[in-house]
């Protein structure tokens, strides 16, 4: 038998009222605001080409735009960092176990070093302030 997802209703939806209120406030602000006359791009404006030129700081586009080469390089570095971080988080050791140091705060390493014996008082596990 197939099932379908159902919306679980209840009091947990109450905080969502804040989002509804925020939408009402934003809608009122937007509808009451005035924005000068629209400029537009024109019928035959080379938008895609101009985006490419703006991305690499090339002064060849006919549509005005700021150069974004620095932002491009920063995003490049962020993407590489994110890729490495994702691999580090998701990878497994060669024996198939997860990378414990990242996953459990070093608990598996501690158990290995102490042959599975836990110290009698572990302030952090008990919610202490060590």
């Amino acid at each position: 038998m197939t099932t379908k997802p159902e919306l679980r209703t209840g009091s947990h939806l109450l905080p969502g009222l804040a989002a509804v209120v925020l939408f009402v406030v934003m809608a009122v602000a937007i509808l009451r605001a005035s924005f000068g006359d629209p400029q537009g791009f024109g019928p035959d404006a080379p938008i895609t080409a101009s985006i490419g030129y703006a991305m690499f700081n090339l002064d060849m586009g006919t549509i005005p735009g700021e150069g974004m080469l620095v932002a491009f390089e920063i995003i490049d570095a962020v993407l590489v960092a994110a890729l490495v971080a994702a691999v580090l988080l998701a990878r497994r050791e060669q024996d198939g176990s997860v990378v414990a140091l990242l996953a459990d705060g070093g608990r598996e390493v501690r158990d290995h070093l102490t042959d599975g014996e836990r110290p009698e008082t572990d302030a952090v596990d008990e919610g202490g302030d060590r």
Binding site: P38, Q39, I47, I51, A54, V78, A82, L83, A85, A86
Partner: peptide
């Protein structure tokens, strides 16, 4: 589109790239 300036569209591309990076880390977490 309103102001006839491509800066916003270029920047939105970077935002999409940033969102992709965020998803990669988020899925790992």
């Amino acid at each position: 589109a309103y102001w006839g300036n491509v800066t916003g569209q270029t920047f939105s591309l970077f935002t999409m790239a940033l969102a992709a990076a965020e998803v990669a880390v988020g899925i790992g977490i």
